[in-house]
Design a protein around this nucleic acid. Structure first.
Length: 423
RNA sequence: GUGGGUGUAGCUCAGUGGUAGAGCCCCAGAUUGUGGAUCUGGUUGUCGUGGGUUCAAAUCCCAUCAUCCACCCCA
């Protein structure tokens, strides 16, 4: 036998109810984002590798260890996008979108990272994100947080999420803080875990969000990032928090929240799902006032978020059931000679209503056909035989309730169905 | 990239060296224009893959792949 070719590691097939759940989450994001007057942007899945190296930072894990790279036929290095923000900002610069506008853009699509697969972590995963460009006002930070809050509320998962927020200030402030932190931790570095020791040299800020308890103890006496922020940064952060309080959006100040990508400035935020295992970051984002200049554009402030659809689905699954629905009405022709009439009836239903209609295809006894009708999950089956074809009627049978079947004129079918649907 | 668990029928799983099993599902009949419930009968397998030990391997050993959990990282 010929060998089966499986799907690529970390890249899954999503079927039936699981696919419906993802679609539902996506459509809620779409509706809420559009209600805030955000407009959709679709950028390529493949970009020059350089875009991510420069945008996210050469030494970030997402770029250094996890990027899918591919050599194009003309020997240029391309990459499958590991996230969406760099592409959106690149597009805004290339299309000159900020020249006379403050674009409010949202996107959705697959992202790729070469990581070890785990629950809630895949090598191909779905992001939905939004970016507001050209606005410095803290209101733009708040607005994005409000959008995601609305989405979670609409999905009915608000009680399972927690918003964490912090400000990491300007890159100057972070440089000052980095020096202070290193000075403070160097003498006690023997108390740190191995990863944190490495980070002390490579990326000291990331020590802050270490999960190792002993390291967190050491950090209690270390300098605080908040104390290194400029007066302006503090003021604008207070304003963001104020807006959240006025809107009754609950948050947790998390001074150890630092982001893994280099482009963030000032406000950073993240929603954590409760009871989810290790991969519990559902949505994260923040301000990135320096990104456009990194990518060769004019200085333009920006703020955005990205949400992991699969992770939100994992949480949603714990809280809500989603049914697999494929058929409302199953149409059965008794014999081959009734097929033409069945086709006519099925098409009438499809064009005259929004029900899902499936016509039985294949030979078999009526018994078998009805079993297929039952298995399809349909609410009704329409049976069409000699009598029905002759009188131009249909026999309508309930599959889910004990109710008598009835034979009705074809011309009354749609109105009869609507009457039953209302009931 | 590191550590650990698990891979047996379409699904959930039992089977610790001696003929590959159960439940559910599926198929046929009881019931030739009526599904589901019941009864009767039936089908379903490279035991993840490759090698090794053994008279004999689903079972023991090695490797490998997949998957799950944790680390790491992140959405």
């Amino acid at each position: 036998m010929t060998e089966i070719i499986p799907s690529v590691r970390g890249m899954r097939d999503v079927l039936f109810a699981d696919a419906s759940r993802l679609s539902h989450i996506e459509s809620v994001f779409r509706l809420v984002l559009e209600s805030y007057s955000f407009e959709e942007i679709r950028t390529p899945i493949v970009e020059y590798e350089q875009l991510f190296k420069r945008g996210l930072g050469e030494s970030t894990d997402a770029v250094a260890k996890e990027m899918y790279r591919l050599l194009d036929r003309d020997e240029k290095w391309l990459a499958l996008r590991p996230e969406g923000t760099a592409s959106v900002v690149r597009a805004a610069i290339q299309q000159n979108l900020c020249y006379d506008d403050r674009p409010r853009l949202w996107y959705m699509g697959p992202m790729f990272r070469y990581e070890r697969p785990q629950a809630g972590r895949y090598r191909q995963f779905q992001h939905v994100g939004a970016e507001t460009l050209g606005l410095e006002d803290p209101l733009s930070d708040f607005e994005l947080i409000q959008i995601v809050t609305d989405v979670f509320s609409e999905l009915g998962i608000s009680s399972g999420v927690q918003l964490h927020i912090n400000s990491i200030g300007s890159s100057d402030a972070r440089a000052r803080f980095r020096a202070k932190l290193v000075d403070a931790l160097q003498p006690v570095s023997h108390l740190l875990d191995d990863d944190s020791k490495t980070r002390l040299k490579m990326n000291p800020l990331r020590i802050l969000d270490s999960k190792v308890p002993a390291t967190q103890v050491v950090l209690r006496d270390a300098p605080k990032l908040m104390d290194s922020l400029s007066v302006e940064s503090k003021k604008r952060f207070d304003k963001v928090l104020n807006l959240l309080e006025n809107a009754n959006i609950r948050y947790k100040l998390d001074h150890h929240l630092v982001r893994g990508l280099d482009y963030y400035t000032d406000t950073v935020f993240e929603w954590i799902g409760t009871g989810m295992g290790a991969q519990d970051a559902l949505c994260a984002g923040g301000r990135y006032d320096g990104l456009t200049t990194l990518l060769g554009g004019k200085p333009t402030p920006g703020v955005g978020f990205a949400a992991g659809i699969e992770r939100i689905a994992l949480l949603h699954e714990q809280m809500h059931d989603v049914e697999r629905i494929s058929t409302d009405i199953y149409v059965v022709a008794m014999e081959e000679s009734h097929q033409q009439y069945a086709l006519e009836v099925a098409h009438l239903l499809r064009s005259g209503s929004d029900v899902r209609v499936r016509q039985h295809i294949g030979e078999g006894k009526i018994k078998t056909k009805l079993r297929w009708a039952d298995r399809s999950g349909a609410t009704w089956v329409l049976i069409l035989g000699d009598d029905e074809q002759r009188d131009r009627t249909v026999t309508l049978k309930w599959l889910r309730f004990k109710r008598p079947q009835e034979t009705i004129p074809l011309s009354d079918l749609l109105t009869t169905l609507y009457a039953k649907l209302e009931f």
